[in-house]
Design a protein around this nucleic acid. Structure first.
Lengths: 353, 353
DNA sequence: CTGAAAGCGCTAACAT
DNA sequence: ATGTTAGCGCTTTCAG
C-alpha cells in the first residue's frame, strides 16, 4: 500500500446533484439505481442534474454500504512451482502467456465493461496465494472469480465452493465438483476432426492426445476414438503428449515409428500439431498430400503454421463473455443450483488437412 | 452494476480489534498504517489482537476516506475500429492477443501483488472508452494507469497528462510528451543484430523494418542502419512491413527481388521474421546456410519457428515490473519530473542466424 | 502518545 | 412517492 496524504478531489457528489435538482439525496440515489416508484417528472429533473454536474457515483462509498465491490477477478491458477507438472512452462511468471489468457480476458471484459463491473487480474500459484485470494474474497474486496485453472489437481475450485464464493471455471473442473463452468463440447470437436479425416480418405489415422488427467485431454481422446469407431475404425493408435510443441514432436516421432504408413493425425491441441508438422516435414512426409493433420483450439499458432493448420475452433471470447454473465448472475445467489454452458466447436478447414 | 441486497458479512473490523486490544480504533489504525509515535508495548498488543481476530482492513472504507483505491489499471489502447491501422489485427477484441500483453500483465503483477495494489484490466478503443476511463480516473476508481498504446497517434497519453493522471507507458510515446515510460534500448538491440550478421560474414544484409510512424519501427531501423554504417556498410536495403507475419512475407518477397544475393536479414520483430522464414524456404534458400535471419522480441513465435529464430530479447516482465514501480512512486507525486527507464536488450542466438 | 469525534459518499430503513 | 436519518469501516484532525 502506498500511504500519502489524500489527493484533493473535487468531483460532484449525490449531495450536489440533489441540490441542483432540488430534491433529497435519497431520491437521486433512487434514480441512479433505477428504483421504481419515482415520479417520472422528478426522474427527468434528476437526470438533467446528473448530466449537468457530470455526476458519477463513488464506488468506494457504494461498496461500503452495499458490501459489494462491483468487481470480479480473473484468476489464473498455476501449479505450485515445486510441484509443477512437467508439461507446463516452467519459466516464472509465464502463466499469463497461455495463448487463451488474452482471449479470455478480452471476452470477459466485453460483457463486464458493459455493466460497469471491473475486472481485476490475479495470479495464484501457492498456498499463500490461495489464502490471500480467499482472504480478499471473505473480506469483500471482490464479488466473485472467473477461474482459469491450469492443472487437474488444483485445490482452488474446492476452496471456492467451501468458501461459498461465486465462481465460474473456464473448462470442466478436474474432479466432479458442484461449480459453474463454461466449456466447449470437447468430444464433438474431436469428432469433427475424425469425420474430416475419414472423409478425406485417410488410411491409418492416429492421434496425439493430451494429458490423460486433464478434462480436455481425456475428452478429446475419447471423443475422437468414439467417432472413429462409428466409422468402423475400432482401433486408433495414440501417444499421449503434454500439450506443448515439444511434446507433440516426441509423440509424432513415436507414432511415425509405430505406424509408418499413417495418413492422418489429430493432435489434441495446435501446439502439438505444430510439433507434428515439423516432424512430418523432417520425415519427408508432405502435408496434406501424404498425411493430413488437424489441431484443436484455433490458436494464433494454427494460422502462423505452414501449411496453415486445419483445426477445431472453440469460441473462447464468447465462452469468456458467458462466464462473466454466469458469474454476475450468481453474485448474491450463491445458493442457486450450479450451471454449465457448453459451446459447440466448429471445424476450421485450412491447408493441413 | 448488479443490484442485490447486501450479502451479510461477518468479518472483524477495526472496532473488534480495538476492543480485543483494549485500545481505541485510532490506535489500531495507527498501528496498521505503521504510523510512528505509538508506544511499542501497545503496538505489540495490537499486533496480537490483529492476528487473533484475523483482521484485514476494508478497502472500500479506507478508500472512502483517503481518496485512494490502491488499485491501478493496465489499459490496452487500440485504435478506433473505423480508423484501424491496416497492420493491426481487425478481429474484434483481439487486442489482448498481443503477444506482449500476458507478459506485461505478469510482470506488473509481480510487483503489485507484493505491495497489495490491485491490477484492473481495461480496453479502450473509442472516444467513449477514453472518456469512461478518464471519468473513472477523475472520480477516483483508479489511482493510475499502466498504458499499452497500440498506435502512434493515440490521443490517450495526452489526455492522461492533461488530466494530471499518474501514468507510465510501455514504450516511448509516439510524440514527444512529458510522460513516464519504460522502454528497451531499441537502437542497441538492432545494433546487436547488425553486429551478429556482419560477424557471421553475410554478404548483402537487408532489413524488414516496422512501420515508420511507430517509435519501435523507426528506432530499430535507424539503429540497424547506424550499426551497419559503423561496419562500413553505408547502404542497407529495406522494405517497411507492418509487424505482422503476412507483412513480413510481402516485404521479404520484395527484398528477394531487389537483392537476389542477400545473405542476411534483420526483421524488426519476430512475426515478420517468421514470415520471412517461410518466404525464404519457398524460394529455396536455406536458413541459416544461405541466409541468416534475426528477429526482435523473443516472442513465443521465435521458439516455435523452425529453424528456431535468433532474436533480440527485451526483458518484458522486468520492464512491466518497473512500470508498476514507477507508477506507484508517482501516485501522490504528480508534479515530480517525469522519468524513463531504458533496459538493455540481449541477443538470443538460436539456429536461424 | 492516545482517545474522542467528525466525517468520506452512499444506500436503506423508516417516517411521512 | 419523497424526505430524514442512521450508519457502512476507516482515517484524521483535534484535544488532552
Amino acid at each position: 500500500m502506498t500511504s500519502q496524504s489524500p489527493a484533493p478531489r473535487r468531483v460532484p457528489t449525490l449531495e450536489h446533484v440533489a441540490r441542483v435538482a432540488g430534491v433529497s439525496r435519497a431520491t437521486v440515489s433512487r434514480v441512479i439505481n433505477g428504483v421504481r416508484n419515482v415520479d417520472p417528472a422528478l426522474v427527468a429533473t434528476v437526470q438533467r442534474a446528473v448530466d449537468e454536474t457530470g455526476y458519477v457515483p463513488n464506488r468506494a462509498a457504494r461498496s461500503l454500504v452495499t458490501g459489494r465491490t462491483y468487481s470480479v477477478a480473473l484468476v489464473v491458477s498455476a501449479p505450485d512451482p515445486e510441484f509443477g507438472d512437467p508439461y507446463l512452462p516452467t519459466e516464472a511468471g509465464h502463466s499469463f502467456d497461455d495463448p487463451f489468457f488474452g482471449r479470455i480476458a478480452s471476452g470477459a471484459l466485453r460483457h463486464l465493461a458493459e455493466i460497469d463491473v471491473h475486472l481485476m487480474l490475479r495470479h495464484v500459484n501457492s498456498d499463500e496465494g490461495r489464502s490471500r485470494l480467499m482472504s480478499s474474497l471473505r473480506q469483500g474486496d471482490l464479488d466473485g472469480v472467473l477461474l482459469i485453472s491450469m492443472y487437474a489437481s488444483d485445490p482452488l475450485p474446492r476452496m471456492l465452493i467451501d468458501g461459498g464464493v461465486p465462481a465460474v471455471l473456464f473448462g470442466r473442473p478436474g474432479a466432479a465438483l458442484p461449480i459453474c463452468y463454461v466449456d466447449v463440447n470437447q468430444r464433438a470437436g474431436a469428432a469433427l476432426a475424425a469425420d474430416r479425416l475419414v472423409a478425406g480418405g485417410c488410411r491409418s489415422v492416429v492421434t496425439l492426445s493430451g494429458p490423460g488427467d486433464t478434462p480436455a485431454g481425456a475428452d478429446r481422446l475419447h471423443g475422437f476414438r468414439d467417432a472413429m469407431a462409428r466409422h468402423g475404425r475400432a482401433y486408433v493408435p495414440s501417444v499421449e503428449g503434454d500439450f506443448t510443441q515439444h511434446g507433440g514432436e516426441a509423440a509424432m516421432r513415436r507414432l511415425l515409428e509405430e505406424v509408418p504408413d499413417l495418413g492422418g493425425v489429430f493432435a489434441a491441441n495446435d501446439l502439438m500439431a505444430l510439433g507434428a508438422l515439423h516432424v512430418l516435414r523432417d520425415a519427408g512426409r508432405r502435408v496434406p498430400e501424404d498425411v493430413a493433420a488437424i489441431g484443436f483450439d484455433d490458436s494464433r499458432a494454427a494460422l502462423a503454421a505452414r501449411p496453415r493448420l486445419s483445426t477445431v475452433r472453440q469460441p473462447v471470447e464468447d465462452m469468456a463473455a458467458e462466464m462473466a454473465r454466469l458469474l454476475v448472475a450468481r453474485i448474491g445467489h450463491t445458493q442457486d443450483p450450479v450451471t454449465a454452458t457448453i459451446f459447440e466447436p466448429v471445424l476450421i478447414v485450412r491447408e493441413s488437412g
